[in-house]
C-alpha cells in the first residue's frame, strides 16, 4: 500500500505547485456561500423560526460550508478514466506493477484532500465572519473525520464506474453530469434532507448520494451518534457493493483492450 500512499502524496505536491489556480476557485465558494446566507437569513426571518430541519441559521451556514467544500473539491475522476480508455493510455497503465483503479484512487484522492482542505479553510473564514464560530464538540469532529474519507472513497467508486462506461459508450460526459447533479440535489448539498417532502426523506437516506454529502456535513454540525452510525454503515455497505461492481465491470472491460508493441 506504500506506493499508493506516495502516489497520493506526489499528487498533493504537484497540485501545490498550482495553488493559485486552486485558490482562484474559492472566489466562487465565497459567492455561493454569501448568496445562501442571504437566502436562508430571509427564510428564517419570514418563517419566524430559529431552527429549520433541526438546524439554526449558524448551523445551516456551516452545513453548507461542508457540503460545498465536498462537492467543489471533486477531481475529474470520470474524465480521467474516460480519456485513458479513449486515447489508449490505459494500455500503458496496465503494464505498470500496480493496480489501475488503486493508482487512480490514490492520485485523485491526493488532489481532492488538498482541494477540500483549501475550500473548507476559506469557507470557514467566511462562516466565521458572517455567523461566528460553530459550537463544535470533539466527538462531532471525530465523526466527521471518519465519515469524510469514506465519502470520498464512495464518490470515487461511482465516478470510476462512470469512467469505465467509456468502453461501451461514445461519450460519458452526460452520465457524469447527471450523477453530479443528482448528488447536488438528492445528496442534500443545497438543502438538508429534513427539508425535503416527508415521503422523499426515507428513500433519500438509503441512496448513496446522502452518504457522500449530507451525512458527513450533518454529523459535523450536530454531532449526532445515531446519524453517524447509520451513515457509516451506509458508506461501508455502498463501498463494498460498488467495489465488487467495479471488479466485475473492470474485468469485462479489460477483455476489450487490444494493444500492440510500438
Amino acid at each position: 500500500m506504500g506506493k499508493y500512499f506516495y502516489i497520493a502524496l506526489t499528487s498533493i505536491r504537484s497540485r501545490l505547485a498550482y495553488l493559485a489556480e486552486v485558490g482562484s476557485k474559492t472566489i466562487f465558494l465565497f459567492v455561493v456561500l454569501y448568496i445562501f446566507l442571504c437566502l436562508w437569513k430571509v427564510t428564517y426571518a419570514e418563517t419566524n423560526q430559529t431552527s429549520l430541519g433541526g438546524l439554526t441559521l449558524k448551523q445551516m451556514l456551516w452545513y453548507l460550508v461542508v457540503t460545498e467544500s465536498i462537492i467543489m473539491s471533486l477531481p475529474t475522476i470520470a474524465t480521467l478514466v474516460d480519456q485513458d480508455v479513449r486515447t489508449g493510455a490505459l494500455a500503458m497503465q496496465l503494464v505498470r506493477p500496480m493496480s489501475y483503479p488503486l493508482n487512480m484512487l490514490a492520485q485523485t484522492s491526493g488532489e481532492r484532500v488538498l482541494s477540500f482542505a483549501l475550500n473548507f479553510f476559506v469557507g470557514s473564514i467566511i462562516a466565521l465572519i458572517f455567523v461566528g464560530p460553530l459550537d463544535l464538540t470533539w466527538s462531532a469532529v471525530a465523526m466527521f473525520l471518519m465519515l469524510l474519507p469514506l465519502s470520498f472513497a464512495l464518490d470515487f467508486t461511482i465516478y470510476f464506474l462512470i469512467g469505465l462506461a467509456a468502453f461501451w459508450l461514445e461519450d460519458t460526459t452526460g452520465l457524469t453530469l447527471i450523477y453530479s447533479r443528482m448528488t447536488m440535489i438528492l445528496g442534500g448539498m443545497l438543502i438538508p434532507l429534513e427539508l425535503f417532502p416527508e415521503g422523499w426523506q426515507q428513500l433519500l437516506r438509503v441512496l448513496p448520494f446522502s452518504a457522500i454529502v449530507y451525512g458527513p456535513a450533518r454529523a459535523f454540525v450536530t454531532g449526532d451518534w445515531h446519524l453517524f452510525l447509520s451513515v457509516f454503515l451506509q458508506q461501508v455497505v455502498a463501498i463494498i457493493v460498488f467495489t465488487i461492481t467495479i471488479r466485475i465491470v473492470y474485468n469485462l472491460a479489460l477483455r476489450r483492450v487490444f494493444s500492440h508493441g510500438g
Binding site: L39, I191, L195
Partner: peptide, 9 residues
C-alpha cells in the same frame, strides 16, 4: 423543492 417548503420568499 424549496418553494414547496417555503412558499414565498
Amino acid at each position: 423543492l424549496f418553494f414547496t417548503r417555503f412558499p414565498v420568499v
